[in-house]
Amino acid sequence: METIAERLKSALETIRQTADNANRASDSVQLLAVSKTKPVSDIVLAYEAGQRKFGENYVQEGVEKIQALQALEGTEWHFIGPLQSNKTRLVAEHFDWVQSIDREKIARRLNEQRTPHKALNVCIQVNINDEQSKSGVALNEIKPLAHAIASMPHLTLRGLMAIPNNDLDDAALRETFVQMKNAFTQLQAQYPTVDTLSMGMSGDMTAAIENGSTMVRIGTAIFGARNK
């Protein structure tokens, strides 16, 4: 069985090779290791192998890990799951990024609850395939939400995040990624802080990178099957 270090190396090589094939710089795509449901010991192994960016979907679990791993220098914690109003304070106080902003109300609460000396990096989550079961805004709702976030002094708008429908065929998946890339490019033209297009996971990261992703969120390909 491959170790976490070996799987991490393999994922990074896939990212590098895919970026190279797409005529992109190898460092233009970052790897976010999605560590939800995984023990602290697994995160330590990934850290020792060089990984610094970690993603968590559940507030309490994520906060407990952040607190347990405070001694690991240089870690960057991303909250990537749905966020309820009653959990915003914990996220604002502990995480470095929130990738799942889909309402102005949530953004305002995070802004009010964030420690003033360091802004919280945020991405707007886009429900690109209009799925009722998923969070996120429609494409035509990006602009007003971005405008609101840009006025909040303790938040820094960094870009967009999306989770495409996992039942799409290859052509439809690529079209979805193209739509996201276009929306990202439009946002970049308006806001100088925007530099992150978070799309692509273990099963579709190649297509995502080929269509402009700057950050892929990889869990099972690094840590193995998710714990129930």
Rank of each mutant, 00 (worst) to 15 (best):
T3H: 01
I4Q: 01
E6D: 14
E6R: 12
R7G: 00
E13W: 01
E13A: 15
T14N: 15
T14A: 13
R16H: 12
Q17Y: 00
Q17P: 01
T18Q: 10
T18H: 05
D20W: 02
A22K: 04
N23C: 11
A25E: 14
D27V: 03
A33Q: 07
V34F: 04
S35D: 05
K38A: 02
K38S: 02
Y47W: 08
F54M: 11
F54T: 10
G55S: 06
G55M: 05
E56A: 10
N57R: 06
Y58C: 11
Q60P: 09
K65V: 04
I66A: 10
Q70M: 10
A71G: 05
A71L: 10
L72R: 13
G74C: 03
I80C: 12
G81I: 05
L83R: 12
S85M: 06
S85K: 14
R89K: 15
V91L: 07
A92Q: 07
E93M: 10
H94E: 12
F95A: 05
D96W: 11
W97N: 02
Q99R: 11
Q99M: 04
S100E: 08
E104Q: 15
K105A: 14
L110G: 04
L110E: 05
N111F: 13
Q113W: 08
R114G: 01
P116Y: 06
P116I: 11
A119C: 03
V122N: 05
V122F: 09
C123Y: 02
V126W: 01
V126A: 11
N129Y: 01
Q132H: 13
K134C: 11
S135C: 10
G136R: 11
V137H: 08
N140A: 08
I142S: 05
P144L: 09
P144K: 09
A148I: 12
A150I: 02
S151A: 15
M152K: 05
M152I: 04
M152P: 00
P153W: 04
H154R: 14
T156Q: 14
R158I: 02
G159W: 02
G159P: 06
P164F: 03
N165M: 03
D167I: 02
L168T: 07
D169Y: 07
L173H: 07
R174P: 06
E175G: 05
T176I: 07
T176C: 15
N182L: 14
F184L: 07
T185N: 10
T185S: 12
Q186K: 14
Q186M: 08
Q188R: 15
P192S: 14
D195A: 06
T196E: 08
S198M: 09
G200I: 04
G200V: 07
M205G: 09
A208W: 04
I209F: 04
G212P: 13
I218Q: 09
T220C: 00
I222M: 08
F223V: 03
F223M: 02
F223I: 03
A225W: 00
A225L: 06
